[in-house]
Structure formats: structure tokens, C-alpha cells
Design a protein around this nucleic acid. Sequence first.
DNA 1: TCCAGATAGTTACATATGAAACTATCTCGG
DNA 2: CCGAGATAGTTTCATATGTAACTATCTGGA
Lengths: 148, 148
Amino acid sequence: MRNKPVLNLDHFIPYRLSVLTNRVSGAIARHYSDRFSLSIPEWRVMAALGQTPGLSARQVAERTAMDKVQVSRAVQSLLEAKRLTRGTHCEDGRVSQLSLSPQGLAIYKELVPVALELEREFLSVLDAAERKLLDRLLTKLSTAVPKS
Amino acid sequence: MRNKPVLNLDHFIPYRLSVLTNRVSGAIARHYSDRFSLSIPEWRVMAALGQTPGLSARQVAERTAMDKVQVSRAVQSLLEAKRLTRGTHCEDGRVSQLSLSPQGLAIYKELVPVALELEREFLSVLDAAERKLLDRLLTKLSTAVPKS
DNA sequence: TCCAGATAGTTACATATGAAACTATCTCGG
DNA sequence: CCGAGATAGTTTCATATGTAACTATCTGGA
């Protein structure tokens, strides 16, 4: 006698991951959108360029796991807000070179501590060993899903 | 001498969670959208009702962490596709009673094993102890983020 | 040198989404 | 019994997003 197969959402890991992630991202996004009206893609682009200035749009896309259209749009609105500068690679006219402008850098410097503090709060329910473990589990799991 | 604050995305847990989650959700979504052209919200509604028939829209929203507009739209398109039935609560005319139709149930029964298999694959890089740990960490972390 | 791909980035279009306003129904105090 | 909220669910509207088509530039082989 086969009983009907059931999927209990409360125990389904992909679902739980999704709910948790959306809440965390939402909470962080609220901070920087309130303060600087930055969208999530915009903030990601800024974070990538704050870490590594001079990246091309494609490189930003790779590092942030965004697609190139998203990056293109975020770059455009950041340029309009004068939070980014864009040059062209000297040897390849297709490639852009993006960096934070002074204004962009100022925002970045103000937001980084906020982001880190929110992460700290979020992780505060875990002790040091658990945090290390979480890091390790995320690394392992990331290898298990296809990049695209 | 203060150096500039840096946020390394590769070590920023909220960001890593987000990338991982989007890849996992995307991989799962591809399966059921290819096979039955179900959107993510639609599948979530079906999963909730497969587990607990007769829920109201609000209850579905609570259980799936979706907002009521999303649920309303998903329900509407599922009704059009005859994958759901809707009645009205006998004592409160505002409240709907949603269940999977026979067609909906057939789809649900076909997709549940697929979802579980994808979860199994996803978790296959972890051993049993690590899986238990992941479960525990997710539970703990979920208590650390505000519901809305 | 020239042209058939490849690649970087943008644009256009159709669809998805979220916030706020709206409708319908219910509840409760007077 | 009636009217001021509360609640369930829908609709509207403005914006965000993904896919596919497009432009511009580069590369490598004939």
C-alpha cells in the first residue's frame, strides 16, 4: 500500500533557505534603500567595485552572480547619480572600466560598517564554532549547484 | 592610521546565502516550469495545499512566506488552469477554501519526488552529520531575522 | 586584408512584482 | 440594529526583471 508522497515545506531545505535569504536580503536592503535609495543590484555593483576598482561590467557580473543586463542597468543609474565613473579599456574598446566616484566611495564607506553590523547581528544566534561550520557548509553546498 | 573598510563579498554570509539560494531555486524552478509551466509562486501554493488541503489564501501566504497579492495571483492562474478548486468558508464569506483539483493533485504527486530528489542531490555533498547541522543552523538563524 | 564568428554591453519587449487603493464581508460596542 | 473599524482578497499602477535581439568592437584564419 503506497501512501501519497508529501513534501513538508517546513523541512524542505531549498524552501527554508529561500525564506531565510529573502528575509535577510530584505532587511539589509531596507537600510541602504532608505538611506541612499540604492536598489539591490546597485548596491551589489558598488560592493564589487569597492572591493576591486576598475572592473569591467562582465567582471562585475561574474563576481556578483548577476546577469549582464542587470549590471548594465545598475551601472547606468549609478552613473546618472554620479556614484560611478566609467572609462574604456585602452586596448579593447568594448570593455568598460568601472570605479566608484568620490561620492560613490563615500556611500560605500558609510554602508560597509552597516552591512557588517547587520551580518554580525544575524549571526549572533550562533557561537563561534557554529559560524565556522556555516561557512564551511555554504562553501560545500555552493560546489553542488550548477553555476547557471 | 585607519585603512579603508572593505567588504569582501566572498566572505559576506548574506551575499553567499543569496547566491546559493538563487541558484538552487532556479534549478528547481527549471524542472517544474519546463514540465508544467508553473511559476515559483504557483508551485509554492500547490505545495502548501498538497500538504494541507482546504487552506485559505491568507493561510497559504503565512505558510509560504509569500504576500497576499502574490498568493491571489498564483491562485487565479491555477484556477484558470483547473489545478485548484476554490470554495467559500461556510461561516465567513470572506474566507476562501482552496484545494488541489484532481489534475493539480496529479501534478503535485509527480513533482514531489522530483523536488525531493533535487534536494537529495543538492545535499549529497554533505554527510549525515553535516545535514543535521545545516538543519539546526537554519532553524537557529531563522529566529534571528524579523518575519517581515 | 577581409570576413565569419566571438564577445562586451545596450535596448526593446513582454511579463512579474510590490505598494497602495479598493471591494466585500464580518465583528463588536453602543 | 447600526455604524466604525478590522479582515480577506482583488485590482490598479508604476517599476523591476529576464529573454532575445541588437550594436559595436575585436579575433583569427583563409
